[in-house]
Amino acid sequence: SEEWVEIALRLLELGREANINGTILNLHKEEIEELIRRLLKRI
């Protein structure tokens, strides 16, 4: 399964939302940290 691709796409999506909203992603901080942890486990 290409889970890391899904994770990377989700991170990009959150990054785009952050640019549009001008936020520092506090809302998504925990989700982002969890996604990155899952991503690093696969490398």
Rank of each mutant, 00 (worst) to 15 (best):
S1V: 14
S1E: 12
E2H: 12
E2T: 08
E2G: 12
E2D: 09
E3F: 15
E3L: 11
W4Y: 04
W4H: 01
W4A: 02
W4K: 00
W4Q: 01
W4S: 01
W4L: 10
V5A: 06
V5D: 02
V5R: 07
E6Q: 11
E6D: 07
I7L: 08
I7Y: 04
I7T: 01
A8I: 15
A8R: 04
A8T: 07
L9T: 03
L9W: 12
L9H: 04
R10L: 09
R10P: 01
R10G: 04
L11T: 00
L11R: 00
L11H: 01
L11A: 01
L11W: 05
L11Y: 02
L11M: 04
L12F: 05
L12C: 15
L12K: 01
L12T: 03
L12M: 07
L12Y: 04
L12V: 05
L12R: 02
E13L: 13
E13F: 13
E13V: 08
E13P: 02
E13S: 06
L14A: 02
L14Q: 02
L14H: 02
G15F: 15
R16W: 12
R16F: 14
R16I: 11
R16N: 04
R16L: 12
E17R: 12
E17Y: 08
A18C: 15
A18F: 11
A18G: 06
N19D: 09
N19M: 14
N19S: 14
N19E: 10
N19P: 04
N19H: 13
I20L: 12
I20F: 11
I20P: 05
I20E: 07
I20D: 05
I20S: 07
I20K: 11
N21T: 09
N21D: 10
G22T: 12
G22L: 14
G22H: 07
G22V: 12
G22D: 10
G22W: 09
T23V: 10
T23I: 12
I24H: 07
I24P: 07
I24E: 07
I24S: 10
L25G: 08
L25N: 04
L25S: 12
N26V: 09
L27Y: 09
L27K: 13
H28K: 06
H28V: 12
H28M: 15
H28S: 14
H28G: 09
H28C: 14
H28R: 05
H28P: 07
K29F: 15
K29P: 13
K29H: 11
K29G: 10
K29R: 10
K29D: 06
E31D: 05
E31N: 03
E31W: 14
E31H: 08
I32M: 05
I32W: 09
I32L: 07
I32K: 00
E34F: 08
E34Y: 08
L35M: 07
L35Q: 01
L35A: 03
I36F: 09
I36W: 06
I36A: 02
I36L: 07
I36D: 00
R38W: 13
R38Y: 12
R38N: 06
L39G: 00
L39S: 00
L39T: 01
L39N: 00
L40V: 04
L40K: 02
L40E: 01
L40H: 03
K41N: 06
K41D: 09
K41M: 13
R42A: 13
R42W: 15
R42E: 03
R42I: 15
R42Y: 15
R42G: 05
I43T: 02
I43E: 01
I43C: 14
I43L: 11
I43Y: 07
I43R: 03
I43G: 02
I43D: 01
I43V: 03
